[in-house]
Write a protein that binds this DNA or RNA. Sequence first.
DNA 1: CCTCTTTGTTCACGGGTGCGAAACACGCTC
DNA 2: GAGCGTGTTTCGCACCCGTGAACAAAGAGG
Lengths: 173, 173
Amino acid sequence: MKVTGEARLLLVEDGQPPPRLVDCLEDWIRVPAPEEDVRARVEALVARSQAHGDKLPGLDANGVLRYGGRWVSLPPLEARLTATLLDRFEAVVGRDTLIRVVWPGQAPGRNALDVHILRLRRRLQPLGLVIRTVRSRGYLLEPEGADAGAENMEHVPDEDEVGAGSVATLGNP
Amino acid sequence: MKVTGEARLLLVEDGQPPPRLVDCLEDWIRVPAPEEDVRARVEALVARSQAHGDKLPGLDANGVLRYGGRWVSLPPLEARLTATLLDRFEAVVGRDTLIRVVWPGQAPGRNALDVHILRLRRRLQPLGLVIRTVRSRGYLLEPEGADAGAENMEHVPDEDEVGAGSVATLGNP
DNA sequence: CCTCTTTGTTCACGGGTGCGAAACACGCTC
DNA sequence: GAGCGTGTTTCGCACCCGTGAACAAAGAGG
């Protein structure tokens, strides 16, 4: 289950101070409230998360990769690499596939792909994107902090500085 | 005509249905409401409008470029350059496109464009506008500090107060 | 258990090239 | 003539991209 792309509506109990939110995908409302009010805010959040959904990285024809409001420009080879990793976003892409896409003619030395993956990793880091290695299988592009495997899903009670109430989380498939 | 750069907080009277808003720079609240609630939403809008809702620079027919309350006058050639960069604001414009617009006849020497970009950069700097180079792709005009290439991740400005009318319009200085 | 092989990570180096920037030259307009 | 707008030359840096090599981690095989 993905964690990115979610919007949150904080339900603030009466008597608690209002939260400080900046993110466009966050909102809050004081409860109890008319149900139509809650629904209006939920619908607004959903609409925003779809329209303004920069939760998926976008790569334009000029090699500019945008994600999370920031961007980097990629050189041609790394742009091809990224494009390939991107249309299998969050899934493994084999080394041979990458080599075929990046060098349509003949592949250069054995090391070339590794080096470019390394350089691409460094360039993607400030955007919050990570390339994971799946040994003897390939590579996988994903947002930072979306890993931790399926088995060690220890639930740390993530306590916000928001001092009140429950949190309704709106998933975005 | 775009209306970007302004944020609105709708004050909804009791008994009225909640409005349907999608824009990240719009919000609403039911009145009467605690003043801290109103202020929390106003501050959130201001923060958003500074972080994400940037006002577009404006270039008039006389070559005067205005942005962020200040202005500079541009010579004809640089005005054409700026106009081209401006209708692809925050996106890459190819060198060939720029050359075609700036010199409709025949292009001068190879370095002419570089020099004019350099001079335009110096002129735009006091306005808080930056021309980024996207190597072998072109150039990109954007407000200072909106990229991830350099790690200038600071600048969380403060906000000012706003009195509440029926509809509060928050200008972006 | 030890060693060799495979696979992946990281560094340093060099050739090629796009771009930045200074300096200069020329023409035009107050 | 002084200042400005524009084009050209020239130098050098920084980046792109491949190569070689050192190093680490995981398996395979004796």
